[in-house]
Design a protein around this nucleic acid. Structure first.
Lengths: 251, 251
DNA sequence: TCGAATTTGTGCGTATGTATC
DNA sequence: GGATACATACGCACAAATTCG
C-alpha cells in the first residue's frame, strides 16, 4: 500500500489552494509556521512541500520576505530557423519585435584571447590559438533574457573592419552579415541544446531562481566550405524564454 | 570571507580522487560511514557531497549496493535537420547506423483516442477530437534511449492504409513518407525543446538516475498547406543522447 | 537611521524505509 | 533471513535577507 508521505499531501493542499484562486498571482502565502500549525504538521514538512512547488514553478520564495504565488510570465519566443537571418538586421531584434518587446543587448569583447580546448575543437583550430571573445547579455525591455559568449578565430576576421562584432560599420548586424562583408558565405549552423541547471552567477545575472532549468546551446556557424567561422555558448533560461526550431523537410 | 561549507569541501575531495584515478569507472566507493570517519565529518555531509556529484553525473548511487563512479557512456547523436528524412527509411535507424549501433523500437498504438486539450491546440483541432496515439520506445542495441508519444488526427489518416504508423505497407517509414503516400506533402516541422527533470516513470523506463535531466521536445509536422498533420512529445535523456540541430542559412 | 522581529534559506543530525548481497 | 548500504522523511539550529517600528 503506497501511503503518501506527509509533505506530498501538503504540496497537494497548497497546489489546490492556488488552483482554486484562494491565493492568486503575486499573493504572499502565510508563513511556514502558520501553515504548519493550520495543517497540523511540522514546519519542515511545509518547507519541503513549498520547495517542491517552487521547483515546479508554482511558487516563488523570497528570502526574508515570504513565499509567493509565481506570476505567469510571458516568455520570449526564441526562433531558430533558416529564415532567421535578415540582411542588415539582427536576429534578436526581430525575435523581440515579434512579441512586441524592445530588443537590446550589452556586450563586452576581448580581442586576442587564447582559445580554450573545447572551443578550439569546435572551431577546428588548436588550443591557444587567438580568438575574439564577446560576452553578450540580451535584454527585453531592459531586463536580461538570455546570455551568450561568442568565439571567432582571429585568423578569420583579424585585420579587417569586422574584427569586433560590436564595432565598425557592421556593428550588431549578426555573424552572417558580417562574414558576408568578408566574402565568406555562411551556409549553415549546428546547434546542440543541453538541459542544465543555472549556476549561481547565471541565476543572478538573469534574475531567476537558483538552480532553475536552462538550456545551454552550443552553436557553431559554418562557411559553405565547411569551415567553422564562429562558435557560441548560449544560456537560455526556461522561465523567460521558449526555444523554437523550424526545420524544413526536403525529400 | 567566503568560507566554503563542509559538504562542498568533501565533494572536491571525492571529485579529485576520481579525477586522479584513485577510483575509476565502475569502482565502488567506500561506504558513507567509512568516508565520513576518514574525513572527520558527519555521514550526512558525505551524503550531500555524493548527491551533488551524482547530479553532475560523476557518481552513481545504487540502493542497497553502494556508490559507484559513473561510467562515461557513449551518447547517441540525435540529428534533427532537413536531410533527416530519407525515402523508404526511418530517421532513427539512420541515426543509430551513424554511430554503429543497432536501432530498433517498440510501439503501442491506440486508435480513436480523444485529444487532450494541449494536443488539440497543437493540431489545430478541438479537444476531444479523435486521434491515433502511438507510444514509442526507441532502443539502441536493445537498450531504451528515448521515448516518444505521437498524435495524429484521425481525420487525416482515418480509413486509409496508413492509419496505423506501425502497421500496413508503410510501417515504420516515418511520418513524412507515410503522409506522402496520401498525397500530403510535409514541408516542415516545428520543434520546441524544454529542459525538464525525469519523472520516476521515465527514469525507470530509460534506466537513468531519478530526476536526471531530460529534454522534452514538442514536435509538430506541418503540410505545405500549413496544416498540422502530426504532433509528438519526445523525451530525450541527456545522459544517453545528444541532440543536434542543423539549421541551414538562407539570405 | 538603525536595530529588532519575522521569514525564508542552509547545514547537519537522526530515525526509518528499502534494496542488495 | 540477516547484515549492509543507500534513499527518504523529518527535526533543530543558525545564517541571511527583508520588513517595520
Amino acid at each position: 500500500m503506497p501511503e503518501q508521505p506527509p509533505y506530498l499531501g501538503i504540496a497537494d493542499v497548497l497546489r489546490r489552494r492556488v488552483a482554486e484562486r484562494e491565493w492568486t498571482s503575486g499573493d504572499r502565502l502565510p508563513s511556514r509556521a502558520q501553515i504548519a500549525q493550520e495543517c497540523g504538521v511540522g514546519e519542515n514538512v511545509v518547507r519541503r512541500a513549498q520547495e517542491l512547488l517552487i521547483s515546479q514553478g508554482v511558487l516563488e520564495g523570497r528570502a526574508g520576505s515570504g513565499t509567493y504565488v509565481a506570476e505567469p510570465r510571458k516568455r520570449v519566443r526564441v526562433v531558430r530557423s533558416a529564415a532567421r537571418e535578415q540582411p542588415q538586421s539582427s536576429p534578436f531584434r526581430a525575435d523581440m519585435k515579434a512579441v512586441g518587446r524592445q530588443g537590446d543587448w550589452e556586450s563586452r569583447t576581448d580581442a586576442k584571447v587564447p582559445a580554450p580546448a573545447e572551443v578550439a575543437t569546435r572551431l577546428g583550430t588548436t588550443e591557444g590559438d587567438l580568438c575574439v571573445r564577446t560576452a553578450y547579455e540580451f535584454l527585453a525591455d531592459g531586463k536580461p533574457v538570455h546570455l551568450s559568449t561568442s568565439w571567432e578565430p582571429y585568423e578569420v576576421t583579424g585585420g579587417t573592419l569586422v574584427v569586433l562584432p560590436e564595432g565598425g560599420p557592421h556593428a550588431g548586424a549578426g555573424v552572417v552579415n558580417r562574414m558576408a562583408a568578408l566574402g565568406i558565405n555562411v551556409s549553415h549552423a549546428v546547434e546542440q541544446p543541453e538541459p542544465q541547471q543555472a549556476t549561481a552567477e547565471e541565476a543572478s545575472l538573469l534574475g531567476i531562481q537558483k538552480a532553475a532549468l536552462v538550456t545551454h546551446i552550443r552553436r557553431t556557424y559554418y562557411s559553405d566550405e565547411g569551415q567553422p567561422v564562429e562558435t557560441a555558448d548560449i544560456v537560455v533560461p526556461t522561465a523567460l524564454c521558449e526555444i523554437v526550431y523550424e526545420v524544413p523537410i526536403s525529400r
